[in-house]
Design a protein around this nucleic acid. Structure first.
Lengths: 110, 110
DNA sequence: CACCAATTTAGCCATTCCTCGAAATAACCC
DNA sequence: GGGTTATTTCGAGGAATGGCTAAATTGGTG
């Protein structure tokens, strides 16, 4: 999960995921969309792969990357849920019990 | 938006946001929840503030931070939407070239 | 086998990031 | 004013990140 957020921190990588949303593409095809070198793109693919956000499949001499949408979905939805985002829930103080548990060692401020 | 994802890339900062979801807290109260120094926490607050994810209000000698949930919500939902996540939509090919925004000039590869 | 095409690995450099202790601010209190 | 508290700014170190070129790898083809 931390790996996913780290992966999402770079604009190039986010864009790669977006391109991959439409259809699987080879490393070369993806690289054509960006103004950086192939090795640099390769490094980005590695980050995405290690975050389990994409999957590589070798076809002949080229490598096709495919988006693992469910992984992205799980992380995004899971995180959003913590904040009551997207679930038409208003959340903010309703988790009362939970809120208290985090403040127990905070009393001594002044 | 890039700033938001950069801010979310660090576990400490994500946790700060979670703590702030329950209620506004002072810098000191927040710092008590983490095993790092105050200056380090202050740096994290700066990143979150520059991403517009939190808001600072000075009260006497201390500074209270408050989560700007709507900003987080907009970014998360906006990004998820590009992938058809969370909207019970299956999407795949509809947002086609709309996703351009961040990296334009791409054509020239070799 | 020799050659070409697609990708990755290796090595390097510059920048950014996370962390710290020490010092500077800012606001309060006696 | 002097002292204390809360927080930030400063300066620095070490690790991670993103970029490149050159070289290695892998697979297909004449």
């Amino acid at each position: 999960m931390n790996a996913v957020f780290k992966a999402l921190a770079d604009p190039t990588r986010r864009r790669v995921l977006e391109l991959l949303r439409e259809q699987p593409m080879t490393a070369g095809q993806l690289a054509e969309h960006f103004p950086v070198s192939r090795p640099t793109m390769s490094a980005h693919f590695t980050v995405l792969r290690e975050a389990d956000l994409i999957e590589a499949r070798k076809i002949g001499t080229s490598i096709t990357y495919q988006l693992k949408l469910s992984v992205l979905e799980d992380v995004l939805l899971g995180f959003a849920q913590v904040f009551g985002i997207g679930s038409s829930e208003r959340a903010a103080g309703d988790v009362s019990d939970d809120a208290r548990s985090q403040l127990h060692q905070a009393g001594r401020s002044r």
